[in-house]
Design a protein around this nucleic acid. Structure first.
Lengths: 334, 334
DNA sequence: CTCCACCATTGGAGCGCTCTATTGGTTGGA
DNA sequence: TCCAACCAATAGAGCGCTCCAATGGTGGAG
């Protein structure tokens, strides 16, 4: 299907190609009369400027590449909405690609993103090796979301996981809990900060931390709880759990119920991420909320600052999480 | 950040630009020696072909545009994975855009997709008016997923909602249920077929259909259930519910529990879509599964057939859903 | 020894656009 | 009346690439 070009519009409107270009750039130096003629001709032909040709000719890209490690995780969906609205406002287009949580697939996806010669790329919690990220950063401005980095060439946007985990512990302590366990996120990029925050908060209250190995999935949460309860005397069981993230919390809750514990009467559970499922009445999970939209917007902002050459020092955005109290936490059974 | 061009590579390898082009097209008419030299030079410079320039010069696009109506819905995430793998295999790149369930935003997103002059576009359950879709179809091959159309210029990929809803009813009838209500999906593009399937199946078993107005969200499910129970005598309450989709089912389940009904002992619930949440042990929702990956693959296939000019008649793929029985259905109380 | 077929390689035009420099047509001040 | 200043409009080069037609170099057949 051959689509009309700028030339076609120019001929039909009886003007030069350059004038059409000016009209589509909203240049003020075009008479109202001509502008109208051009727009009419474009409308009649169904003309639409060709982004790629424009990018080539102007030597500037309006494309922002976005690599999502895992589309199934609704957390990213909301970050993307933030990216999307910020990008659109600034006149940029998003090109999205997904890596399905596999380093090799992510690499391929990043490669394909870079082949667009984008103005910048956003990497959402990538599992890529640091070397690959550095390589990308040499090609265009790069910002990391939900993953930290020491590279001075990349910007980062993260929530303050230390503060978030602390928030969860403070809440439980305030309710009267003292035996509070943490289900660790393992290799996830955000796990270390949450673990640290948990430890700090526990020690600040003179309590003994208990970190249980796990992962950010519901099956891992399930397994870890079974292991924890199976290897501990009943009187020693924790009265509250700080899960690595919401999915982990869901798994943990299933396991707890299987073991005959009621939530929150017998044991409280706090998640992390405030995914949309947590808000479902049936689930009603107390959890830590990250300002996802805001994170998306900041990521785009950081990118654009680099694109415009306004900044060369790395930006390190650390956002404040907040606690959303719902139905899975209550004071411990006397 | 200026990136190296084909010219740079050519100079460094001591060959012509055209030869470099041939190497990157994997042309067989290049000597091993030169090929190696070119690849080495490219590697050293960190050269990567410019997709946009290539598209312009070759007058063929390797871009497939994807419009997702709602990224938060995990259903689409899996369709996209199907799209992604099929596209990658065929050497195409995905450009994703999201419309956040608003017609005007969707229109803007579609517009921006089309400005890439893609080889084709995939519209995932769009809320766009038919006229807009037809317009898009005039510009490039277009396929609709989870939405049907009479337009001969667009292909469609849908699950057989009639069969899916029937599956749900059959299952409940087999368990012994007779008063089975349906929570309707309202204006959702997939609602009509499911409603029809429900009606047909009920009538086939000599049962009276009861369609309750609702939407494909959990809050709507909640409200509808409260209304249904509030306006009916207890003895008349249904013993089973066929929800419009999983989210609707989640909301319905919250409301049922609030009304003091146990699931599945007092009332059974069946969802639709088999979203990843349905599989969470804590939820364990019996639901209808659509072959999402397959749908993604078929969509890309349909597009490529049109691109290659192999077919001009509209393709109408109707896929068979299957029932996934979990914990929210059981025989009715005596 | 010539001729032609065949091969790897190359120059150059052109894809749809932007951008710089330039044109020609008004104005208005001196 | 003349010229600078200004304006809308345009010609033409060039962005990074592909592709076609053409190049020169080789080898085998006649």
């Amino acid at each position: 299907m051959p689509r009309p070009t700028m030339e076609d519009v120019a001929v039909r409107a009886g003007v030069s190609r350059a004038l059409v270009s000016l009209v589509f750039k909203d240049s003020p130096k075009v008479s109202e009369q001509r502008r109208a003629a051009v727009l009419a001709a474009a409308e009649e032909l169904g003309y639409q400027p060709h982004v790629m040709a424009r990018a080539l000719a102007s030597r500037t890209s309006t494309v922002l590449g976005v690599l999502v490690s895992d589309l199934r995780n609704a957390f990213f969906a909301e970050v993307i909405e933030g990216l999307d609205s910020a990008a659109r406002e600034a006149g940029f287009e998003l090109v999205l690609n997904t890596g399905s949580r596999s380093p090799s697939r992510e690499k391929a996806a990043l490669h394909s993103l870079l082949s667009f010669h984008p103005a910048g790329v956003v990497l959402l919690s990538p599992v890529l090796p640091a070397a690959t990220i550095e390589q990308a950063a040499r090609k265009c401005p790069t910002v990391l979301v939900s993953r930290s980095s020491r590279l001075s060439t990349v910007d980062t946007v993260n929530d303050d996981g230390v503060a978030g985990a602390r928030l969860a512990v403070e809440h439980l302590v305030a309710l009267g809990h003292r035996r509070i366990a943490h289900l660790d996120g393992g290799s996830a990029t955000t796990a270390a900060a949450r673990r640290r925050g948990y430890r700090q908060a526990m020690q600040a209250h003179g309590l003994t931390p208990l970190v249980v190995a796990s992962e950010h999935t519901d099956t891992a949460g399930e397994k870890s709880v079974h292991q924890l309860l199976g290897s501990t005397r009943r009187e020693q069981w924790p009265t509250a759990l700080v899960a690595g993230n919401d999915f982990n919390a869901f798994g943990a809750m299933s396991a707890l119920e299987e073991e005959g514990l009621r939530i929150p009467e017998d044991i409280s559970v706090v998640g992390y991420d405030n995914t949309s499922l947590a808000a479902l009445k049936r689930v009603s999970l107390t959890t830590v909320d990250q300002p996802r939209m805001e994170m998306g917007r900041l990521a785009v902002e950081a990118l654009l600052e680099r694109v415009r050459g306004e900044r060369s020092a790395p930006a390190r955005h650390l956002l404040h999480p907040s606690l959303v109290v719902r139905g899975t936490t209550s004071p411990p059974a006397s």
